[in-house]
């Protein structure tokens, strides 16, 4: 605006560059995560002589990284102050459809994989549509219903059978290496970078944060809230389907009860990574560290024969820890 106003007021100058604060830098949640990760590594090394060598660490990633794909879109969803507890069921349904397309319908495996991703996308899209078209319903209820529905459909298709016999090349997803690096690790890094850039460096990501802080104000600011939610939920479905591909590849077969309880692991990883359940806050770098914390913890405890049920307790406790710490900080203030 020109003219009169400039005459009327003496203008104040505003700073447009953010100063770097060392204190702020070291007060970040991610440093705590790094410490925890180091703690987990030290503990594992002390407990098991087999833990700390390159091969062992490398191969461990092949086991725990598959579900981590879902953590990234889940982080987006949680930043938008929503939730999706149907992801485990989406993994099951898309993998079951893939196996059926290959084994029963006789489709080529390549086509089956594409169908798997499409099914995942459809599951996510349905979640997104229900949540945006019926804003009266909370995401908890919608995804709770679809969680039962998707797994229910998987049971209808395969009953309690397993379906496998995939072609040999399909095993590459779960077990392959490229230049000695597990294929899944490479895919993981690519996905992490893509989602990280999407969240932190694009206008789309900025809008996701805006919605999480205040969806009404976002709408009034011209943000297409519904479309953004739809895209993110669909992405969650696609990533769940990608998980299904890697999981089925690693296991060699699939069955309707596969990926049971993944939603908790995924939500726990995101929350531990510093994604606030109150919305609007979080960075993907934190979730990456959290994925490795939980993954290596799981692997290390497995090495010393601690039953997986103990791990359930630990993951539950970690989730609570992650959501309680910020609350306590808030209360102190």
């Amino acid at each position: 605006m020109a003219s009169k106003m400039e005459e009327t007021y003496v203008h104040r100058k505003l700073e447009a560059h953010k100063p770097f604060s060392t204190k702020q830098f070291f007060l970040q949640w991610e440093w705590l995560l790094v410490l925890i990760l180091i703690g987990v590594m030290v503990l594992n090394t002390l407990l098991s002589p087999y833990f700390l060598n390159v091969t062992s660490l490398r191969d461990a990633t092949m086991i725990f990284l598959d579900k981590s794909f879902i953590v990234f879109p889940m982080a987006f969803i949680m930043i938008m102050r929503e939730i999706d507890i149907s992801v485990g069921s989406t993994v099951a349904l898309s993998s079951v459809v893939m196996a059926t397309a290959y084994n029963v319908l006789g489709m080529p495996m390549e086509v089956a994989v594409i169908i798997c991703l499409l099914v995942g996308a459809l599951c996510g899209l349905l979640n997104g549509l229900l949540i945006t078209k019926f804003p009266e319903l909370s995401a908890v209820i919608v995804t709770l219903a679809t969680m039962i529905l998707y797994r229910g459909i998987a049971y209808i298709i395969l009953e309690d059978q397993a379906s496998g016999n995939f072609p040999e090349w399909f095993g590459f997803f779960g077990w392959g290496y490229i230049f000695g690096v597990p294929f899944i690790l490479i895919v993981f890094v690519i996905i992490a970078v893509v989602f990280g850039l999407l969240l932190h460096k694009t206008s789309f990501g900025r809008r996701v944060f805006a919605i999480g802080h205040n969806d009404v104000a976002s709408k009034f600011s011209g943000v297409n809230v519904n479309r953004t939610k739809l895209i993110v939920y669909t992405l969650a479905g696609v990533m769940a389907a990608l998980t299904a591909v890697f999981l089925a590849s690693r296991m060699g077969s699939t069955r309707p009860n596969i990926a049971n309880g993944y939603e908790l692991d995924v939500i726990a990883m995101a929350a531990l990574g510093g994604i606030s359940t109150a919305g609007g806050k979080g960075r993907l770098i934190g979730t990456v560290i959290a994925i490795f914390i939980i993954g290596y913890l799981q692997y290390g405890l497995g090495l010393i024969n601690i039953p997986s049920q103990t791990l359930m307790i630990i993951i539950g406790a970690l989730l609570l820890f992650a959501v309680i710490v910020p609350k306590v900080k808030e209360m102190r203030r």
Partner: peptide
């Protein structure tokens, strides 16, 4: 890609025009 520098410069320009009383656009 979001160009944060252009973004904050533009914001600074407008905030100054409307005489928003603050230290920085952050």
């Amino acid at each position: 890609w979001l160009h944060e520098k252009t973004e904050s410069l533009k914001a600074k320009e407008l905030a100054e025009k409307l005489n928003v009383k603050a230290q920085s656009v952050f």
